[in-house]
């Protein structure tokens, strides 16, 4: 196995680990919300301020969480993954 191969497999493993971690984070956030809806209705009905229940607030935060998670991934991919791929491409051409 050459040096480029090792570097490639390390990058592939890293991409997989990040993808699966972020996927599990999304699963945890969404199903956490659904389980609260299912099993703790009084908690979600509690008012944070007049007109704003914890349930409505958390629902909006689930949407914000999808934005943050996709932003984390895109930022990692643009600043780390793409340059590493470019490096591997030039490396394998030499």
């Amino acid at each position: 196995m050459t040096g480029t191969d090792t570097a490639f497999h390390a990058l592939a493993r890293r991409r997989w680990r990040i993808a699966i971690t972020l996927t599990l984070a999304m699963v945890a956030i969404y199903f956490g919300f659904i389980l609260l809806v299912a099993y703790n209705k009084p908690l979600l009905g509690r008012l944070v301020s007049p007109g704003l229940s914890l349930g409505v607030l958390l629902g909006a935060l689930v949407i914000v969480a999808t934005w943050i998670l996709t932003w984390i991934y895109v930022r990692w991919a643009n600043t780390r993954y793409d340059p590493a791929l470019d490096e591997l491409r030039t490396g394998s051409r030499q």
Binding site: I18, A19, I20, L22, T23, M26, I29, Y30, F33, I34, V37, L44, S53, G55, V56, G59, V62, I63, T66, L69, T70, Y73, V74, A77
Partner: peptide, 23 residues
């Protein structure tokens, strides 16, 4: 509120598309 459960549900598949499938 019950209707809002759908608002979140229809969105949460998109990060999965990004992390696992698109590229």
């Amino acid at each position: 509120f019950d209707g809002l459960i759908y608002s979140t549900g229809w969105l949460v598949g998109w990060p999965v598309v990004l992390f696992l499938i698109a590229e």
